[in-house]
């Protein structure tokens, strides 16, 4: 019995070791090869005393210029703001292979920014600018969803990213 227990123990140790190494390899693959990056906080919106948050957002660059801008060969910047219950711009067009930096914030409550079928998933906090970069390799109509419950018509809050 003791012998048997030792054998099982060794078996489980080996299995656990394999799993651990496997996890680390997947992590390395996703971060190095797939260039998975974390959403980051890249700035804040500073409202002056008495100023509304929306006003502060629209005077803070880059939110004074919404939508897609080409910043280099195959490099784009897409600036969004979210408001209950819509994203602006509601639809953008991008070429296949575009590497897009999404910059977004909220003008009222906390929203989500999730592009279904991609790893783009950020939380949009009022007063905070969130940013994430993604390369669209496949053409299609990508659904941009609000992922954080934001009130009565949360389920209708969406926009489209069209990659041609």
């Amino acid at each position: 019995m003791n012998h048997e227990a030792e054998r099982y123990e060794r078996f489980f140790l080996i299995i656990s070791g394999v799993f651990l190494v496997g996890f680390l390899l997947v992590l390395a693959y996703t971060s190095v090869h797939m260039r998975v990056m974390l959403p980051g906080r890249v700035g804040t919106i500073e409202a002056n005393p008495g100023e509304s948050l929306a006003a502060a957002v629209f005077r803070t660059p880059p939110f004074n210029h919404l939508g897609v801008t080409k910043v280099g060969p195959d490099e784009y910047q897409a600036v969004y703001f979210a408001q209950a219950w819509a994203f602006f711009p509601r639809e953008i067009d991008l070429p296949v292979g575009a590497r897009v930096k999404f910059i977004a914030t909220s003008v009222d409550v906390t929203h989500g920014f999730f592009i279904a079928g991609t790893r783009v998933n950020m939380m949009l906090l009022p007063g905070q600018i969130s940013e994430e970069t993604y390369t669209f390799r496949k053409p299609g109509k990508y659904l941009l969803l609000c992922h954080e419950y934001c009130g009565l018509l949360h389920h209708t809050m969406h926009a489209w990213v069209i990659v041609k």
Partner: peptide
Amino acid sequence: AAVPIDLQQTDS
């Protein structure tokens, strides 16, 4: 716990 995976699952 794995952040890249979590980012696709958050709030789903």
